[in-house]
Design a protein around this nucleic acid. Structure first.
Lengths: 209, 209
DNA sequence: CCTACCGATCGGTAGG
DNA sequence: CCTACCGATCGGTAGG
């Protein structure tokens, strides 16, 4: 039961925001009365925290899988981007709730981001630095800033795809499915802003032209 | 007076969202009573539309200046990015209000984006296509998707900088000013995802190596 | 898990 | 531009 409440709360918080989605609305979506909902979650704020907690829990399950696949090289960095995109696009409400919370409660989200996002950000950043030392990655990439930018890009692209997507394809393109064009371009942008174009054997084969 | 109301409404809508900011709050910030506010704006929704309108008005003043400077070439594309960043970072509340509206009212924002953003998106896209024909721009750039991605990137980076910025610099870095590191990297990502690395004289000087 | 109910606050109006 | 007031809805509680 608690799981269904969290599920519907996520849906409605994502669509209408925390203050915009009433306990009444959420209870009705679950099929119970408001006081029954307040038996499972003592307050609306407790429910909000549970929604975030469940999301970060799922995220923490997925992170090791992402990082394991990513030792180095082009394909592995693609894997990081693809898995991150998969996490958010298999339920865009995750991106919307997260973005809303970042806007609504920056002071509260700071520590949460520091706890759940910064660690793997630093792992990815260290891979980037290693890539720079090996001459595979652009030397002027700011590793931490790059990772932040790509996360922001993925998050916002998926969160607002319903309005930005249809603007691209003048066609019907129902407002439900995410346009692959957008996500493909996001990945391409992230990739080509990172890697040097040529294998570039910097010192190994000093064959001067 | 109406201008002060719109100004404070923008501030509070940006910080707390449309439903989270009450007419009471806004009136108090202006220094008048709620019914006086409702004399200038017949309803809260009218005030919301005025906030959006004023923002898009300012945006429309800035767009021609941006496009005029951008005929072609590297520096001109940088100018587009820099001016767009300037527009939002000189008042980050613009980015926040816009992002909130995209999340809150996708169906209403669709037409607005189509009207105010799509036209210049297509101008920029056509520059990109010209650059591709001349071999200056990566051939696998999807012009419209690229522009959408960069707008999303700028918008979200500025909107949530207060929480993402401090995560980067472990130092004090007060939560007010936007970290130049972030914006510099955003510009670098946008630039290096667009242009081919070399001048690459494709057919003009067929000096085979 | 429910019915019944609470004070507080919401957007908005009447009337001056 | 104000005071006074409206019905509706909010999150939450009592009590079973």
């Amino acid at each position: 039961m608690a799981a269904q409440i969290v599920e519907q709360a996520t849906r409605l918080f994502a669509a209408r925001g925390f203050v915009g989605a009433s306990l009444q609305d959420i209870a009705k979506a679950v099929g119970i009365r408001k006081p029954s909902l307040l038996y499972h979650f003592p307050s609306k704020d407790d429910l909000r925290r549970s929604v975030l907690e469940q999301m970060l829990e799922h995220w923490n399950e997925v992170v090791p899988k992402i990082l394991r696949a990513a030792t180095s090289g082009h394909e592995q960095f693609d894997a990081i981007g693809e898995e991150t995109i998969k996490f958010f696009s298999e339920d865009p409400d995750r991106a919307r709730v997260l973005l809303r919370e970042l806007l609504d409660r920056p002071d509260e989200m700071g520590p949460l981001v520091r706890k759940h996002v910064q660690p793997w950000t630093e792992v990815v950043a260290s891979y980037i630095r290693k890539g720079q030392a090996q001459g595979r990655v652009h030397p002027d990439v700011d590793p931490e800033a790059y990772v932040s930018a790509v996360i922001n890009l993925i998050l916002s692209t998926i969160a607002v795809h319903a309005v930005v997507g249809p603007v691209l394809g003048g066609e019907s393109s129902s407002s439900e499915a995410i346009q692959p064009r957008l996500l493909d371009e996001v990945l391409r942008v992230a990739r080509s802003a990172l890697f040097l174009p040529e294998p570039a054997t910097p010192a190994a084969l000093p064959r001067s032209s």
